[in-house]
């Protein structure tokens, strides 16, 4: 499939092809879980936990082990926000933009964060809709850890040690 000539603008640079070691590791993960009922989501979660993201080259491996078509796997990967397809950045900010946090100023924090790290390759700012911390918003996670009352000032203070 790699031989099909590209039409239109070139896509964003894809991660380098996965190596044989990764393919073997992904195969082992998938084989370990293949006996579960409905194993695809648990396998994809495990791949992201272990390797940071789902590589395009993981898809045929997972499809093979679980006896699914590649289209089935790609369809599932693309449907869910959690299954990222590019390597994660060094730091990740994920801010809640749902109603309860909006009522406490989440949009101001989100705008400040996207501005501050607009050009950063080290820090990724994402949005999330509800972390279940609705009485203490604006809520967000910093490298996965949950924080409350995230004003722009507090966000700055908590990320003081981050580069960029």
């Amino acid at each position: 499939m790699d031989d099909v000539p590209q039409r239109g603008p070139s896509p964003a640079p894809a991660p380098a092809p996965a190596d044989a070691a990764r393919a073997a590791a992904v195969r082992a993960l998938a084989e370990e879980m293949a006996g579960m009922r409905g194993p695809l989501l648990p396998v994809l979660h495990a791949v992201v936990a272990e390797h940071g993201y789902v590589h395009d080259d993981d898809v045929p491996v997972i499809a093979d082990v679980l006896n699914l078509s590649r289209a089935d796997v790609v369809g599932v990967v693309g449907f869910y926000h959690d299954f990222r397809r590019t390597p994660p950045t060094t730091h990740r900010v994920s801010l809640c933009r749902a109603e309860a946090c909006q009522a406490r100023g989440a949009e101001t924090t989100y705008a400040a964060a996207t501005d501050r790290w607009a050009a950063s390759t080290e820090v990724e700012v994402g949005e999330v809709f509800c972390l279940g911390n609705c009485a203490l918003g604006p809520s967000g996670t910093l490298d996965g850890a949950l924080h409350a009352r995230l004003t722009p000032e507090r966000l700055d203070a908590l990320t003081e040690g981050w580069r960029a």
Partner: peptide, 21 residues
Amino acid sequence: VGAGAYICGEETSMLDSLEGR
């Protein structure tokens, strides 16, 4: 564990998700 899709709180969509779809 879900995977960040709000719609999976709808019961039939949750069932499809549990089935790995």
